[in-house]
Design a protein around this nucleic acid. Structure first.
Lengths: 120, 120
DNA sequence: GTGATACTTAAGTTTCCACTTGACAATTAC
DNA sequence: GTAATTGTCAAGTGGAAACTTAAGTATCAC
């Protein structure tokens, strides 16, 4: 059976990905991790240091971040090194850009009309 | 009395705002609302129609969206019209852009380093 | 006026999610 | 070898958050 879905602006897979990324970014602790990783790669324990939570909690956050493509991790020996992944941020950026594009298109269309209504 | 506060990349107020925006965007239903409002302004009940939740739930989502600056609403008579607010999306976009900028800067430094190593 | 429409609000329920604890595995240091 | 380091896993807890129900208010149509 061939899967033949209807043509959508975004596919179901993309939508699931967007969901994972924004859910990941919805938590302040995870955003703090992303911010620090944008500066330099860090190990799990060095990531945990400034955060006031257990190492296990940090690992759980990292799982969510990695599944969303926001973070990439690699284990060498007993040390896992985490770095920022470009993919996740691009997904979020893309969604926002598309929303804004549609909105601005509409805004431009109404521009002339609004100019007339402003004199009241 | 020199006011020399700590030099922060982002102020506490901005951080609270970022938190509200990303929390708002963390929910799929609210993102669906934002997407539809990017196309055209809508009333509360017309927003609720395609969503399989009660009107009360939609109102609660709208409160969160309005507090984050993602949506602007105005009531005329008994009808509340909702439209996309540019402020919220800009906040999210700004955070992502800054993260990416720092990350890319690091990439550039790596490039320079590699270039130097090749010369020697 | 009456009734219908379009929300609004409060309170309760349920579901989810961040976090902890505690035990465990794998690597490195001694 | 033993011990310390670094991380992993499973199960459980507490609180936030999404959602519902039910009642209320304000506006519009007649």
């Amino acid at each position: 059976m061939r899967e033949r879905t209807k043509q959508a602006r975004t596919t179901a897979g993309q939508r699931a990905n967007i969901d994972r990324v924004f859910h990941a970014l919805g938590d302040a602790t995870r955003r703090a991790i992303v911010e620090r990783l944008s500066e330099r790669p860090l190990t799990v324990s060095s990531l945990a240091l400034p955060l006031n939570i257990t190492l296990a909690a940090v690992v759980q956050h990292l799982q969510i971040l990695e599944q969303s493509g926001l973070v990439h991790t690699e284990k060498v020996g007993r040390v896992r090194t985490c770095s920022l992944g470009a993919a996740g941020l691009s997904v979020a950026e893309g969604w926002i850009t598309e929303c804004r594009a549609i909105w601005e298109k509409r805004f431009d269309r109404l521009g002339e009309l609004l100019a007339e209504l402003e004199e009241e």
